[in-house]
Nucleic acid binder design. Sequence first.
DNA 1: TTGTACGCGTTATCAT
DNA 2: ATGATAACGCGTACAA
Lengths: 325, 325
Amino acid sequence: MANIRDLAKEAGVSVATVSRVLNGHPYVSEEKRKAVWEAVEKLNYSKNIQAVHLAKGRTAIVGVMLPYIHHPYFSAVIEGISKEALRYGYQLLLFQTNYEVERELEALERLRMRQMDGLIVCSHEVDWEVFDAYQEDGPIVLCEQVERYDFFTVYIDHYQAFVRALRYLIKKGHRRIGYCIGRTTGPNSQARAAAYQDVLREVGALPRRQWVFDGCLFLEDGKRVMEQWIAMEERPSALLVTSDQVAAGIVLHARRIGVRIPDELAVIGFDNDPLAEMLGITTVALPHFTLGERAFRLLHHWLETGRVARKQEELPAQLLVRDTA
Amino acid sequence: MANIRDLAKEAGVSVATVSRVLNGHPYVSEEKRKAVWEAVEKLNYSKNIQAVHLAKGRTAIVGVMLPYIHHPYFSAVIEGISKEALRYGYQLLLFQTNYEVERELEALERLRMRQMDGLIVCSHEVDWEVFDAYQEDGPIVLCEQVERYDFFTVYIDHYQAFVRALRYLIKKGHRRIGYCIGRTTGPNSQARAAAYQDVLREVGALPRRQWVFDGCLFLEDGKRVMEQWIAMEERPSALLVTSDQVAAGIVLHARRIGVRIPDELAVIGFDNDPLAEMLGITTVALPHFTLGERAFRLLHHWLETGRVARKQEELPAQLLVRDTA
DNA sequence: TTGTACGCGTTATCAT
DNA sequence: ATGATAACGCGTACAA
């Protein structure tokens, strides 16, 4: 493949001039400019972007760390990131981790190796401490509320969102309340657990371990929850379900087996997935797409200017009352 | 940041030796090896991957071109690609195109600039001719059946899949048959259109333009289709719906407005989405995840060995009869 | 307006 | 086993 030196020879100019022409710099005579472009044409030249990256010390690539892609929540976040990245001429490098520590560390190492200019972490397993250690290698944006460390973050206040949904259920007269969650680790999950404890105690209701359903991510998990629920001696009368997919699974399976919702079981989902709207599921709308957008913008603004208005940004959640609670 | 020369100086060896140690080459004395690793530690050294890429002429990065991410079909394909990429130590660079020609060309230009070793095209708008022109710049895998050009392809025979579903409907006595599709352009869509024409004519039934519903991608589109259907003077008695999301939208809205399925309207979805299973939707199971896997493997095998068993691979589709047709 | 020369950080070849 | 040195291809400071 032809390189910049071949072009220079062909066009009868210096490599510096070639570079200037290629990058649209001023102070190049029209005839040399023309000669260079003709050489480009003739030699079928194309820039080697790797060399550009090396020479400039930046890549206009942003890494995206996330456990899996095939999930409405994460694919919405990426879509938001992607849209903004496109807009500002950045590219996205994907790091799927499956919540494996090994994978997460590898992504961080890539930041250290300067493969990308920054990293957006959608969700993770390793401790904040680890991320903190990598902050000197490049800007990192976390999609969660962080205490004790000084990170760039864009987040939803899951504690408050949970509190609001719980209070709503309590106002409706519920005291036996449980919830479904994707996993129990991770700050978002822990915030929810705390809210659950706090609010229930507040009204003298009993938080029960067996009313917390773990591993709830997909539609099928909702079916499983419903099967467990029906088999229980003491059933909760209401469930907070941190994914509308799961909530939909619950509602659909309930219909099938003749459990009346919300009379026998009230359900509040999270996300405001189109599926929740279609099924009339009461839900806490979460701005996932916007979360991705803002995460990218924060990173981008930092990369381009070296400063930001504020390092933390909170996004609102909103309870949408429909038919299931 | 410390570089390899700093290491050499610190360890009292040459850069060549440093490189050997860093890459685990043999023929290095134990003491020098130790000295180098100590220098790495002391100077907090990390490789610059951009320089590695430049020097080696390859990146172990694969590009993925797709219109959007936030859709069950595409996110399943990526998940398949991602899983295999992880396994073989490759990284994924995302090119979201929104089916805009401009974006697609940009992705191809990136291949030309050697930003990645190869490209997987999940779906696209531009003509095959364009892709053909870029084949010399790196291996390209298309996820569709291609005639007239010699591409790497992994595909589902959508013509046959459609034929089989249509024949099933006809055997059930349906003659007024329509279908829902994501878009009308693109080889997969055209194969389906051809199957529709061919099979209906075969039995003397009438293919009708107004029974072809375009722009059907998401759940909400199913609702829209149902509203259009109910408003029709002459309604089809059966619909092939090329996305289970849309099929679910149809089925759910039908329930709501009291349209009996399959009696008044038979529905066959595509994908075998969990939602289809939960709703008892008859569907044509399509191996999206596997498609992604195979696409990556094909590319990977070519990159590593320079040859493949065969450049084209067909994946099976299977009709799963449930309750809606 | 143009060219020379060096820097970016590695890898790889070729001596020794 | 080890070291000089030449690629890899581009950007740019500096000089002219």
